[in-house]
Computed example of a mutant assay.
Amino acid sequence: MNWRQRLGAFIGGFDAGQHHRRLRGFRATRAHVNALIAGSGPDITARARWLVRNNGYAVNAVESWAANTVGDGIKPISKIGDVARKEEVQRLWLAWTDEADAEGLTDFYGLQRRAAREVFMAGEVFFRIRTRRAGDGLTVPLQLQMLPAEMLPLEQAGTAANGNVIRQGIEFDRIGRRVAYHFFRRHPGDSTDPGLAGEVVRVPASEVIHVIDPVEGGQLRGVSKLAPAIVKLFLLDQYDDAELDRKKVAAMYAMFVTSPAPENPLAPAEDEDAPAGVEISPGQIVRLDPGEDVTVGQPADSGATYEPFQYRTLLQISAALGIPYPYLANDMVKGNFSNSRLALIEFRRRVSAWQHSVMVWQLCRPV
C-alpha cells in the first residue's frame, strides 16, 4: 500500500476506493480493455458461440435481439424530388438488395439480421465490399461479403512495410486512422476449407465495414454481449442437467423388495439366469416369499426453492444481456400488463439507440 492509499484509508472518502477487510479480495485489473480482449477474447467468443449452439436461453436471447433491432430490415427512404429519377433509384436499390450477399444466401436486409446476431455473439462483424465486373450479370456491380470476427487475427501486431503500426489485425497510419485490415484468407477453425492455414491478406480500410459496439474509449475489437452472462448460463445449464438426471434415475426405481438375510451371504444365487428385478404390469398381483416386503420408490421432489432460484438466476442473466425476462425465457406467466409494458419501453429505447449508433451509422449509411 503506497502513501496515497494509506492517506485515503486514514481520511476516509469513497468506500469503493478503500482497501479494508470487506474489499480485500476485490482485485480489479488496471489493464486496458484492448489488453483484456487480446488475452481472453478468443475464449469468450468460442464460449458464446457454444452457448448459442447448445443453450436454449442463449439462442433465444440472440434471436430476440436480432428480431427487435433489425426485424425484416432497416430500410432507407429516398428524398429525391424528381419523381422519375426517384423511381429509377428505387428500382436499382430493390434490385441490388436482392443481389447484395456475395454468398447468395439472403438479401441486404438478411445481412443486417446476420450482422446483429454476430455482434451479439462475437461483439463485432466485418463486411468486405466486393466490386464486381460488368460481365458478372449484376444490376449493380457491388456485393458484400460477411467475415466473422475470427477472420481478423487478434494476435496480428507489429509494423507494416510502409511503417504503419498494426494492432490486433488493424493497420493505423501515423495519426491513428485505420488504413487497412489484415484478414486470414480462410477461417482458422474451418478444417473443411483447404488451403494454406494462417495466410493473411491486406485489405484497404476503404473496402471494409467494421460493425462494433465499443464499451470503452480506445477499444479496437469487440466483446460478446453474452460475456457478463456466460458463467451463469453455463452453470445454470449444468444445474438443470444434474437435476433432470437425478429425477430420471430416481424415477427408474419403481419398488424395492426386502428379503431376510440368507444363512450364507456369500453363496451364489440358485438361478444365475434369473432376471435381476421383478417386472410389473398394471393390476398385477405379486406373491411374495415368507419374510419379503415391498417398498414403493418415492423420488425426492425438486423442492420449493427450485423455481424461485431459477427465476432469480434468469433475472440476473436477463439484466446482463439487456434482454427482458419474458423475451429471454419465453415466460409470460409472471408478467402483468404494467411491468411488461415498462420492460418493453426500456428495451425499445436501448434498441433504438443501438440501431442509430451501430447498425445505421456503421453499416447502412456506408452502403
Rank of each mutant, 00 (worst) to 15 (best):
A329S: 12
R6F: 04
D190V: 00
R91K: 11
N330R: 12
R47M: 12
H210A: 07
G73Q: 04
G104F: 03
V33D: 03
Q238R: 13
I317A: 09
V70S: 02
S78V: 02
R117W: 11
G176R: 04
A16R: 15
E270M: 08
V278N: 00
H210V: 03
F126E: 10
L105Y: 04
A16D: 09
L342V: 06
A95N: 00
G158I: 00
M1L: 01
L244Y: 07
G335I: 11
G158A: 04
S78I: 03
V59H: 01
S40Q: 10
A251C: 01
E346N: 15
Q18K: 03
A343F: 04
F183I: 13
H356Y: 02
Y181N: 11
V257Q: 13
G41F: 07
D82P: 00
L266F: 14
D15A: 14
F256G: 02
L363R: 03
L321E: 07
R341N: 07
A84Q: 15
P324T: 07
W361H: 14
S191W: 02
P290F: 07
V83R: 09
L138N: 07
T45D: 07
V165F: 02
R117T: 05
E87A: 11
V203D: 12
C364K: 07
S357V: 13
W93F: 10
T192S: 12
G13Y: 12
V83G: 09
A48Y: 08
T258V: 15
P268G: 09
P214N: 03
Q90F: 00
G71A: 05
S340L: 06
V249H: 07
P204K: 13
R132T: 02
V211I: 15
Y325C: 13
F10R: 05
L23V: 10
V231A: 06
G277F: 09
E118T: 10
V33P: 01
A134Y: 01
T131M: 04
F183R: 04
L142G: 04
I212G: 06
A157D: 13
W3E: 02
D193W: 00
L51A: 14
T131N: 04
S64A: 09
A160S: 14
D301G: 06
W354C: 09
V52P: 07
D101I: 05
M1K: 01
V89A: 06
